[in-house]
Design a protein around this nucleic acid. Structure first.
Lengths: 114, 114
DNA sequence: TCCATATTTCAACGATTATTGAAATAAAGG
DNA sequence: CCTTTATTTCAATAATCGTTGAAATATGGA
């Protein structure tokens, strides 16, 4: 990941509500979550939310798709992964200090018995 | 690390010049680097630099000490480590996805033979 | 078609940001 | 004490940010 992309991703996450939004999307997993559901969960005005979604999207941290009347937003784990990799590399002075961790979707859609 | 601290650290790193400053401090290691040396290395005005140092310090990402006429700034690896830990945990939906990586001073003068 | 739902667009607004220039402060050396 | 060096403080500025309210757009259903 390039520095410019890292700065963009950092800026996207460096805001209270937006970090909450992203965390919620991460928890929602790869299937994503409708904008309205996020709005309700975090008690945010829908237009405010659109603003934040845009930021996340510009930073490559989220994707959208339409599904009926709803817009479904999903986290882009690949970017998050690259960001953590960038930080890990750059917090250790050029020489690697640890292999980058893997950021994967929350959990498989498997339903746990019991 | 609390969310509020993570947001502060993210915001501190989410700026071109400031990210450069922090990277330089990381490379400088635990002994740190004089403000003037950073100013020269990155070609930044000294007052601008003071502003950025303050941000890093407020976010817990740097420390200062006076040494003669110079102010020596050093990266706080502990905070950076905690931030990467926070991101790693929170990019994986609450359940851990990988153990947090370790962020250590650039090079340790280790007694590595060979 | 008309209506309700879901979301976006747009124009404001105050708040914060990064940068600058000028002046102040702190320490070291003559 | 005076001067130089190193850095900070302060006030001003343009730019960007996050939020709001009102209006627009898109979709699905009666």
């Amino acid at each position: 990941m390039e520095k410019i992309d890292a700065v963009a991703a950092l800026a996207a996450l460096a805001q209270d509500n937006r970090l909450d939004v992203f965390r919620l999307l991460v928890q929602a997993g790869p299937d994503g979550m409708a904008a309205g559901a996020v709005a309700e969960a975090l008690d945010l005005a829908p237009n405010t939310l659109t603003f934040h979604f845009d930021r996340l999207r510009m930073a490559g941290l989220a994707t959208v798709r339409r599904e009926g009347r709803s817009m479904i937003y999903a986290a882009r784990f690949e970017t998050m992964n690259a960001l953590v990799g960038f930080l890990t590399e750059n917090c250790c002075g050029g020489t690697s200090c640890t292999p980058a961790p893997a950021c994967k979707p929350a959990r498989k859609r498997s339903r746990v018995p019991a």
